[in-house]
Design a protein around this nucleic acid. Sequence first.
DNA 1: CGAGTACTTGAACAGTGTCAAGCTTAGTGG
DNA 2: CCACTAAGCTTGACACTGTTCAAGTACTCG
Lengths: 258, 258
Amino acid sequence: MQQKVHQLFAEIVDARYPKSGCAACDLRDLWCLPKGLNGDEFLQVDRIINRRKRVKRNEYLYRAGDPFRSVYAMRTGFFKTFITSARGLEHVSGFHMTGELLGMNAICEDKHICNAIALEDSELCEIPFAELEMLGRKIPSLQHHFHKIMSREIFRNQSLAILLSSMSADERLAAFLLNLSQRMGARGYSQTEFQLRMTRGDIGNYLGLKLETISRTLSKFQEEGLISVRNKHLVLNDLTRLRQIAEHTTSGTPGTPT
Amino acid sequence: MQQKVHQLFAEIVDARYPKSGCAACDLRDLWCLPKGLNGDEFLQVDRIINRRKRVKRNEYLYRAGDPFRSVYAMRTGFFKTFITSARGLEHVSGFHMTGELLGMNAICEDKHICNAIALEDSELCEIPFAELEMLGRKIPSLQHHFHKIMSREIFRNQSLAILLSSMSADERLAAFLLNLSQRMGARGYSQTEFQLRMTRGDIGNYLGLKLETISRTLSKFQEEGLISVRNKHLVLNDLTRLRQIAEHTTSGTPGTPT
DNA sequence: CGAGTACTTGAACAGTGTCAAGCTTAGTGG
DNA sequence: CCACTAAGCTTGACACTGTTCAAGTACTCG
C-alpha cells in the first residue's frame, strides 16, 4: 500500500526530472533523508548534496579530530566506526551499511569524534550540514525526518548498551547476527546468507567479547546446526532458534507457563 | 570570560523582561535549550514552554508506549530512565539531572520507548515538540543548538557502550562516580560530596554488574581510602586515583614510558 | 515501632579471558 | 602462476573476574 504510493510517486518524479542524483537513487523512499518530500523539495535537497564520494576499502571517510562539515549518506558499501582510546586501543562503535547516515555524533563538538573506515569499496553522498539545517528550516518534513533519524540513532545506541549490560556471549552474538540479517533483508538481500565484512576481532570488540570467544561461539552455533560459517561467509539456518537465544528464552520446554 | 558575557547578557534581559519562565531560569545559559538566544527569540521559546511540571518521587514522567508530544527540560530533581524487557526485566538506560533534556529517543517512534521515573521530587519544563520544531525553523541558533544536544546524546550513549564493552567492574564504577561528580560540579554543587539518588541495584543494572558487585567494589574503594560511603551519602576522597582507575592507567609506576 | 526494602559479606561456581600453539586465507612480489 | 608472508582464525588448558546463592544487618517509611 505505502509501497505502491511510493512507486507511483517515483514514476511521476522520474518523468518530470532527469534520472540522476537523489531522484535516481533507489534509497530515497527507504531510509535516506529526502523521504516523503514532494518534487520541488526533492530537487532542493538534491542540489546541496555532493554525490558519489567514493571511499575504497581500508580508506577513511573521516578521522577523529577532523572538522565537522557534513554528514554522509551511504549509497553502497560497508563501514566501521571506531574510537581510539588514549592508550591506543580501538573501540568499535558501529557497523554501517546502505542508506545509513554517518557523522551525526560530530555535530556536538564541531569535529569528528570517531573514525570511519570503509570495510569494502563504498560510495556516499556528502551532505553539508549547514545547508541541511538551512533546508530543514524551509522544509518541515525534512527537518522532522532528520530529527527522527537522530532519535533512532540515540535509541540504537541505548539498545546496544542494554545488550552489553545484560546479555551473555551467546545472546550477544545471536542478537548481532540477527541484526545484520534483518538489515540485509531490509535492503533486499538474503536474510539468511551473506558475507561478514568485519573480522572476528571487530565483532568481539563491538560486542565486548574477545575474538576467541566469537570464534568459539560461532563454532558452537555451527555444531548445533544454527548457522554455517566458512571464513566470512555466513548462512543462518535457524532464525527462530537464534531469536530464542537472543531473547534468552531458550531454557525449558516451549510454552512453559510462569 | 564566557561566563561574564553571559552574566552581562542576563542582566540586560532581566531588566527588559519580567523575571519568570525561561528568563528567570538560572539554567538557561548553561545547558538548556534557549542558550545563546537574543531577547526576542528568548521570549518566543518561553511562550511555547509549559513551565513547572512537577513529578514527585517514585512517580512517572512518562512510560514506554505513551504518545510522544513533548521533550522535557529538567529544572530540579533526579530521574532514572529504563526499559522493561519482554520478560519483565528492568534495564536502566540513564540517570538524569538538572538541565538535561528527556524524551529525545521517542521522536523516532512517535511514542516513548522508555520509562522515566523521578528518584526525587522534580520539576520540569514541558516543551511541545511540534512547536519546538516550528521555532527551530524560525530561529537558526535554536535549531542548531537542539541538534547539538541530540548529537551529544548519541555520543553519550556510544561512550556508555564503550565503557560496557571494555571496562572492568572497578573501572566502570570509578568512571560512574566521576561522571556523577563532574555533573554535580558543573551544576555548582560539590564535586566530592553528594547523595546517591539511586540504589546499588540501579547502579549495577546501568553498569552491567550485579548489585553485590557494586556493594563490594564500593567497600573496596572505601577500604583503600578512595571514597567514603555511608548508605547513599558519598564522599570522593581521591579524584586523581579514581581517574587513574577509570582510565585503567593504574598499573606500574606513574610516568613509565611506553 | 514494625515490616519491607536495601545493603553487606562470605563461599562456591560459572563464564570469559588469557596465553599459547598451530592452521588457513588473502594478498604480495617474484 | 606460485611461493611466501602476514593477518586472521581455531582450539585447548588454565586463570580470574564477577555471579550466584545464602545469611544476616541496617535502613526507611508508613
